[in-house]
Simulated scan of single mutants.
Amino acid sequence: MKNLIILCTGNSCRSQIADGYFKHFANDELKVYSAGIETHGVNPRAIKVMAEDGIDISANTSNNITEYLDVNFDYIITVCDHAQENCPYIPGSGERVHYNFPDPAKATGTEDQILDSFRSTQGMIKDFAKKFVEDRGL
């Protein structure tokens, strides 16, 4: 089994959504971790939009990268520029992949507009995770 970590700034939205999809698509081929360079708690809107797609991330926790310094990662994925540029140390010598997904937590407007922003980012992350897993035969 290979280890994969998904990093973003606060481990609240993008990395949590990615965590759900990587676990869904890779089944038992990957041990999936998600973390941030800070911890902001799991965003309730991320939980909501993932539930709409049949994936439950409500038990996820917001974790700091320092919690995983002893894990050797085969895949290191950053999902925002801030995490890629500011994470002081990412354990492991594995394949590094970066994709700067829009931050839905910064969306403004009505609740429906904000949720649409979450769903848009969610769709991008879902496509990314599925392709990543398929391309590597996981």
Score class of each variant (00 low, 15 high):
Leu138Asp: 14
Ser58Thr: 05
Tyr99Asn: 10
Phe73Met: 06
His82Asn: 15
Ala105Val: 09
Leu4Gly: 00
Asp135Pro: 13
Leu30Tyr: 05
Met50Leu: 11
Ser34His: 10
His24Asn: 13
Met124Ser: 02
Asp81Cys: 09
Ala46Phe: 01
Ala26Leu: 04
Ala46Gly: 05
Lys106Ile: 12
Glu111Ile: 08
Val32Cys: 04
Ile37Ala: 12
Asp127Gly: 15
Ser117Tyr: 07
Tyr75Thr: 01
Met124Ile: 05
Gly137Ile: 11
Gly94Cys: 03
Asp81Pro: 08
Asn86Leu: 12
Ile65Ser: 14
Asn100Ser: 15
Phe128Gln: 11
Tyr89Phe: 08
Val71Ile: 10
Asn64Trp: 13
Asn100Ala: 15
Phe25Pro: 01
Thr9Gln: 09
Ser93Trp: 07
Ile114Ser: 06
Ala26Asp: 00
Ala105Cys: 10
Cys87Ile: 06
Leu7Pro: 01
Glu85Asn: 15
Glu85Pro: 13
Ser58Leu: 03
Lys23Glu: 03
Asn63Trp: 06
Pro91Phe: 05
Gly36Val: 03
Leu115Met: 10
Phe128Ala: 08
Asn60Trp: 00
Pro44Lys: 00
Ile77Leu: 14
Asn100Gly: 15
Ala83Asn: 05
Glu67Gln: 13
Ile5Arg: 07
Glu95Tyr: 05
Gln84Ile: 09
Lys106Phe: 13
Ser34Thr: 06
Glu85Leu: 14
Glu111His: 09
Asn72Tyr: 13
Val97Leu: 14
Ile5Trp: 06
Tyr89Glu: 03
Ala59Pro: 05
Asn86Lys: 13
Asp116Trp: 06
Arg96Thr: 12
Glu85Arg: 14
Asp53Met: 04
Thr9Pro: 07
Lys106Asn: 14
Lys48Ser: 12
Ile5Cys: 08
Thr61Lys: 12
Glu134Arg: 10
Thr39Cys: 06
Val133Asp: 08
Val42Thr: 02
Ala59Lys: 14
Cys87Ala: 09
Val79Thr: 08
Met50Asn: 04
Val49Glu: 02
Thr78Lys: 11
Leu115Thr: 10
Leu30Asn: 00
Tyr75Val: 01
Ala18Gln: 07
Asn43Leu: 02
Val71Pro: 03
Cys87Gln: 04
Gln122Arg: 15
Asn63Tyr: 08
Ala18Gly: 13
Lys130Ile: 10
Gly109Leu: 14
Gln122His: 12
Ile76Val: 13
Leu7Trp: 01
Asp28Pro: 00
Ile65Met: 15
Ala129Arg: 05
Pro91Glu: 03
Phe101Ala: 12
Val133Phe: 09
Tyr33Leu: 13
Gly137His: 13
Lys106His: 13
Met1His: 12
Glu38Val: 07
Ser12Lys: 03
Ala83Thr: 11
Gly94Ser: 06
Asn43Arg: 02
Gly41Lys: 04
His40Asp: 06
Ala129Lys: 08
Asn63Met: 08
His98Lys: 11
Ile57Cys: 02
Lys23Trp: 04
Thr108Leu: 12
Glu95Met: 09
Val97Phe: 14
His82Trp: 13
Ala107Met: 07
Phe25Gly: 05
Gly94Phe: 01
Ile76Cys: 12
Tyr89His: 08
Gly36Ser: 05
Gln84Leu: 14
Glu95Pro: 00
Ala18Pro: 08
Cys87Lys: 04
Tyr99Val: 09
Thr110Arg: 07
Ala46Thr: 02
Asn86Gln: 12
Asp70Trp: 01
Arg45Gln: 06
Ile17Met: 15
Arg96Ile: 09
Ser15Glu: 00
Asn11Tyr: 03
Asp127Trp: 15
Lys48Asn: 10
